[in-house]
């Protein structure tokens, strides 16, 4: 279990993380989400002792990271993509990390095989592609076969097979009862992988709940209706308490606040022809964008 209690950190006058509380439980994949600059990496670095918090504390299985006897056997971390010396061979990179925690060399060969890097084990890290560096980072995280994994953007640079492998790995680990805390901007992947999400914006907590509840609470239930008489139907649905929006200039309406069945019955009662009626599929991405809209630090210029 990872517990974060009141973590606060400022860099100069800029508050990066403010009074952050959350928990990642065993047996679950916890998605850690936030826009760029929200304080995700700073938080993960505080949890792993790389950055000292101004206030608050964090523990891994009840122990502060700095007090873990053999950290690699307790926590596997992937915080820095490609943080390997470019002139060092992949196997040597893992060997030296393994040596710090007394992990035998055979485990190095195991994780090289597990991450599909066996054939490049004796190649220098500087020659690796983004995806291979990511796999090497994952291999480092898995060295001690730890019960807790902390991964910052583990899917970046991976090919489709790599993404699927990572997804299965995380789910498999969670099913074994391990604790997984993973930050990612790939919402589509997280939606199907994360049991719960912790969302932060501008350093503060926005949501800490299970993934389905987060989506439902943020976006609500929407129904898409395609009709020959959009204006007439919109009036009927508004009178019934629905929130109706036209989707572009088409004959489609987006209705919130009324169930699909009631919309159908209202249309039939008023003799309005429907071409289509379906619950709108909601996504973690939509929920994330809506919940963090006010907390986006770096807005792209509009064109």
């Amino acid at each position: 279990m990872i517990e974060v209690a009141g973590l606060t950190k400022s860099f100069g006058r800029r508050v990066a993380v403010q009074d952050l509380h959350f928990r990642a439980d065993p047996g679950q994949v916890t998605g850690f989400l936030g826009p760029n600059g929200a304080g995700k990496s700073t938080t993960l670095r505080m949890v792993t002792g790389l950055i000292r918090p101004d206030a608050g504390f964090s523990t891994v299985n009840g122990v502060r990271y700095q007090e873990l006897a053999e950290p690699l056997r307790e926590v596997g971390s992937l915080l820095d993509l490609g943080a390997a010396h470019p002139g060092r061979k992949a196997r040597d990179h893992l060997l030296l990390l393994a040596a710090t925690n007394g992990i035998p060399a055979r485990r190095v060969d195991e994780v090289l095989g597990l991450t599909g890097l066996e054939s490049v084990a004796r190649k220098r890290c500087g020659t690796f592609s983004l995806g291979m560096k990511q796999r090497l980072g994952l291999a480092s995280a898995l060295l001690g076969d730890p019960p807790v994994l902390i991964l910052d953007e583990p899917l970046n640079g991976l090919d489709t097979a790599g993404i699927r492998w990572t997804r299965d790995l995380l789910r498999g680990f969670a099913n074994e009862g391990r604790t997984i805390l993973v930050s990612s901007h790939m919402m589509g992947e997280l939606q199907h992988t994360a049991d719960k999400v912790v969302v932060i914006g501008k350093g503060s907590l926005i949501a800490d709940t299970d993934t389905a509840t987060f989506i439902a609470n943020t976006i609500g239930h929407h129904v898409r209706v395609e009709t020959a008489s959009p204006e007439q139907l919109a009036g009927v649905l508004r009178d019934a308490g629905g929130v109706v929006e036209a989707v572009g200039a088409s004959e489609t309406l987006d209705v919130k606040g009324l169930p699909r069945r009631e919309i159908g019955e209202l249309a039939a009662a008023h003799g309005i022809t429907l071409y289509g009626l379906a619950d709108r599929e909601t996504s973690l991405e939509q929920a994330f964008l809506e919940s963090t809209d006010h907390a986006i630090e770096y807005h792209p210029a509009s064109r």
């Binding site: 915080l79 943080a83 710090t100």
Partner: peptide, 18 residues
């Protein structure tokens, strides 16, 4: 110096935080 330059000091301290 290269440990700081290439960011590998992070990995070192994750493995040995004292």
């Amino acid at each position: 110096g290269t440990e700081f330059g290439h960011g590998t000091m992070h990995g070192t301290l994750l493995a040995a935080p004292r």
